[in-house]
Design a protein around this nucleic acid. Structure first.
Lengths: 206, 206
DNA sequence: GCAAAACTGTACTAAAGGTACAAAAATGGA
DNA sequence: TCCATTTTTGTACCTTTAGTACAGTTTTGC
């Protein structure tokens, strides 16, 4: 476990931290390299030593973001599964936790990087497209696995579990757009709870 | 009914058409003014005679887009209401028509301008923020009115109709992101049909 | 024919994202 | 402490893009 953090890694992390703050506040396109290097106290040459170009910076940001998201989901799942052994109940608890978490997001949250990429893909390179796709598929897999667990105990014929799994991401992404556009952060958790209600109705006969 | 179309209006329309094509293909940020004027066969001075700046172009695009959207919804509603007098049934028909329409969208569709703005707001001015908000509220009003009509005949207690109305937009916006990211256009209409199924379950007891 | 509308031409600015490359400084292990 | 590698600076230059300023020219339509 030798924590060998070289000076280069430190600098890279500092740039990524600053970039993340700036991008959260005003978006990727509006965050200039000049501004980042001024804040980081390095020169332009220094920046391009660490990152090939702006896209490369985005890629590294994206990777960190995905890793953190994985941790969050693992944590939500662990906390929910502690409270109930029933697959339906624990998933409903998990979705409640997820809604609570979304309610606590700061007002200025820029939304999901997946969507951000989706609407600004010209700015990024192909690596990020692949990362993005992987991120969406990991959401699908996560929810599909849980829904399959529920369906074993509470059969729901004629229901496309994969589509319902995708609806979780759909609801978050759409909910972010809704709440950001109207400037009402409470709309996002509210929409998430509708997804939860839909899942409950699907698997709870009457 | 004197259709007085001045030459200026013609030129403006030509620029808007070209801009729309380009933006549909590669996004707003990646569409340069130089490229538009070359295609339109005018000079830069000509462009800035018609539009104050790039944001002003976006504003006019947005307005046209909203007008067309209103027409589409009015048409869907008219066609659906022709087929059934029952508020629930006609709305379910309308949602099926909407899903069919989304299925016919071209693969390269850039997604909704509302979301596009949402994730690139730094690029636009405040006028567009207001237009965008108005557009979202008009979706809400449209669906809320129909849901209230349904609830009169099929009472559904403890259901927040406004939230369900918002879920229509949420599903479209989220569905666009899902299908664009995975490059599978069939996912969008599929998600829309889940919304339809949810509405059906809410108002159809068992 | 004449005024207003619809452009053109020229010249210039500033910001942003680079590229190229040599030189200097810091780091860390043998 | 030497030495190689890593990290960073400095200088100079290029391209694209979104403008601005404003005078002059052409076109349109009553």
């Amino acid at each position: 476990m030798e924590e060998r953090i070289t000076k280069g890694e430190q600098t890279r992390a500092r740039i990524l931290d600053l970039a993340e703050d700036a991008v959260l506040q005003k978006g990727f396109a509006a965050t200039s390299i000049d501004e980042l290097i001024a804040a980081a106290g390095i020169t332009k040459s220094g920046f391009f030593y660490h990152f090939r170009d702006k896209s490369d910076l985005a890629k590294h940001m994206f990777k960190r973001y995905m890793d953190r998201e994985d941790e969050i989901f693992a944590d939500l799942e662990r906390r929910a599964d502690e409270l109930s052994d029933d697959p339906l109940h624990s998933t409903l608890i998990l979705l409640k936790f997820l809604a609570d978490m979304l309610a606590d997001l700061p007002e200025t949250h820029p939304g999901c990087l997946v969507a951000s990429y989706c609407y600004q893909h010209q700015l990024f390179n192909d690596d990020i497209r692949e990362l993005n796709e992987a991120s969406v598929l990991s959401w699908r897999t996560f929810f599909l696995r849980r829904l399959e667990g529920i369906a074993e105990k509470y059969p729901a014929p004629d229901v496309d579990l994969r589509a319902i799994a995708d609806l979780a991401l759909t609801t978050i992404e759409g909910g972010i757009i809704l709440s950001k556009t109207l400037g009402k952060k409470e709309l996002l958790p509210e929409q998430m709870l509708l997804y939860r209600d839909y899942v409950r109705r699907i698997f709870s006969p009457a």
